[in-house]
Each structure stands twice: as C-alpha cells, then as structure tokens.
Simulated assay, not measured.
Amino acid sequence: MQVIGLCRFSYPAIGGFQTTHESVEERRQFLYQHDRLEERFRLFEAVALPGFKKQSDEDFQLVIVVGDCLPKPAFDRLNDLTGGLKQVRIVAKPPGRHRKVMQDVLNSARNDPDQPCLQFRHDDDDAVAVDFVERFRGCVRECVGLFERHAMVAVDFNCGYLARANSEGIQATRVHRPLITAGLGMYVRGGQRKSIMNFAHNRINRAMPVVTRPDSPMWVRGLNRFNDSPRTRNMDVALNPLTRQQELEFQTRFAIDPDVVRRRHAKP
C-alpha cells in the first residue's frame, strides 16, 4: 500500500495558519525573514530529516510543498539537503487556499487513486521514529477488518517527546498527547478524494475511527519561537537536558544526534 507524507516548508498558504496576516505579501515577509528561515533549516536538517533517511521501511514518499516565491537560495538549500533522499519530491505552488492546495498535492501523488493509500502530515521542526512507516503499515494489517469497513481511519501514535533544540543540545520530556500532528496518519480508501489535510488534526476523531498506539515513543514535537500555534509556542512545560540514555534513544529511535544539533545551532 502506498504511503505518502506531506510537509509544508514555509508555504505561504491562504488560511492554514493560526498566526494571522492581512495579506499574502505580509505572510511571505513573515515566513521568509532571515532568522525564521535559518531556524527552520537548522531544525529540518538536524531534527526532521534524519529519521526519514533511516526508515526501516523505505517504501514511502515525502512531498515537500514550498511556495513558488520561495527565495532561490532557500530553494537551492532545501534541494541540496534532500538530494540524497530518493523518497523526497519538492513541489512548488503559488499561494492558494490551504486545504484545497494540500488536498490536490496529496491526490496528485497517489499512484492509483482507485487503490487505498496511507497518508501522514509532517511539520518541518518535528521528527518521527525510524520505524514509523513500518509500524504505520503494520497497523493496517493488524486491524484489517476495521479498515475494510471504513472509507477513512486515523492511526494515532500518541507517545513521544516534547523537545527544544539549541546550541546546548536537546531539552525534552516524554509525554502522551493524543492527535497531535507528529505521529498521526490516515488510511484513505480507493476512490476517496478527501485527504488527511482536509481535517484539523486535533478533531479528526470526530470524522472517523481512530486506532491508538500508545507504547513506544514515535515522535519528537519541536518547541521553538516560530511555532505557529501560540499554545505550543508558549507551552509551559518542564524540559530537561537529555540524559546519556535518552541521547542514545534519540539516536536509535529518531536518528537525531545531539552533537549535530549543538553544532548546527552554534553557527551564527
């Protein structure tokens, strides 16, 4: 079964942000400001990409959506970072209605729209475990009867880490959080045009059944000053420096090297 992930990299959508702007031009200026782009690239390279490079099941696609107005140096940098990952395809789109654009991108990525597929969305400052695709597929096999009876079913890996990455390394805490973006996927029946981007992630359980997997940590949710959600950006949660054992877990579960994080964030 085809597995498709979608990642928006500073795409200037109309809608789709909790941070509001008066115009598309104002949104572009916010998204493309130097400090913000630098932070997104540091997190994308050191946190988000490593886990996709090390997936135990390599049969997946990751579509990265950018604006066709993304500055060329930024586009070239993104292209260089993902050049060694065969599963990645960068798609440049003009600004448009968020849900409609993302739905069209996902449907265009389907090899055969008449066959079922698995979809997930991913933020460029988050990470998934190296066995995410394998376990996502495995969930369908384990619950085949449920998936056969419904046009759409969500899969929620609800255990992970809230984390902050900076020049001192990673500070984190392990949590269970239902229906956040990281670690959430969706089965879509063949012939169904709706996609995972048609639903607010925290309310997807109002539209379809949800299979919850609460055991192994499956994601890292990044906390940083440019989080779109004010609730996430200002989250009052105690984060502690990783222990040596946790550093090893981040390396084995997410392919995140805390030393690489320190070096990337130490650059001016």
Results as ranks from 00 to 15, higher is better:
residue 2 Q to S: 05
residue 3 V to N: 09
residue 7 C to R: 05
residue 13 A to S: 15
residue 15 G to E: 01
residue 15 G to K: 02
residue 15 G to I: 00
residue 16 G to H: 07
residue 25 E to A: 14
residue 25 E to M: 05
residue 27 R to D: 02
residue 30 F to G: 04
residue 32 Y to F: 15
residue 34 H to G: 04
residue 35 D to G: 13
residue 39 E to D: 14
residue 42 R to Q: 05
residue 44 F to E: 02
residue 44 F to V: 01
residue 45 E to H: 11
residue 46 A to W: 12
residue 48 A to P: 01
residue 48 A to K: 04
residue 49 L to A: 05
residue 55 Q to M: 13
residue 69 C to Q: 15
residue 71 P to T: 11
residue 71 P to Y: 14
residue 76 D to L: 13
residue 76 D to R: 13
residue 85 L to D: 07
residue 86 K to C: 10
residue 88 V to K: 06
residue 89 R to M: 06
residue 93 K to L: 09
residue 101 V to M: 04
residue 108 S to N: 09
residue 111 N to M: 14
residue 112 D to I: 08
residue 113 P to M: 11
residue 115 Q to T: 09
residue 122 H to N: 07
residue 126 D to L: 12
residue 128 V to C: 13
residue 130 V to E: 03
residue 131 D to E: 15
residue 133 V to E: 08
residue 134 E to S: 13
residue 141 R to D: 11
residue 146 L to S: 05
residue 147 F to W: 08
residue 152 M to W: 08
residue 153 V to N: 10
residue 153 V to Q: 12
residue 155 V to M: 14
residue 158 N to F: 12
residue 159 C to R: 15
residue 161 Y to W: 15
residue 163 A to I: 11
residue 164 R to E: 14
residue 165 A to H: 08
residue 171 Q to Y: 11
residue 176 H to D: 07
residue 177 R to C: 11
residue 193 R to W: 02
residue 194 K to S: 13
residue 201 H to I: 04
residue 202 N to G: 07
residue 212 T to Y: 04
residue 219 W to Y: 14
residue 225 R to F: 04
residue 226 F to H: 14
residue 233 R to Q: 02
residue 239 L to A: 05
residue 243 T to F: 05
residue 244 R to D: 15
residue 245 Q to P: 01
residue 247 E to T: 05
residue 254 F to R: 12
residue 258 P to D: 08
residue 266 A to T: 04
residue 267 K to G: 13
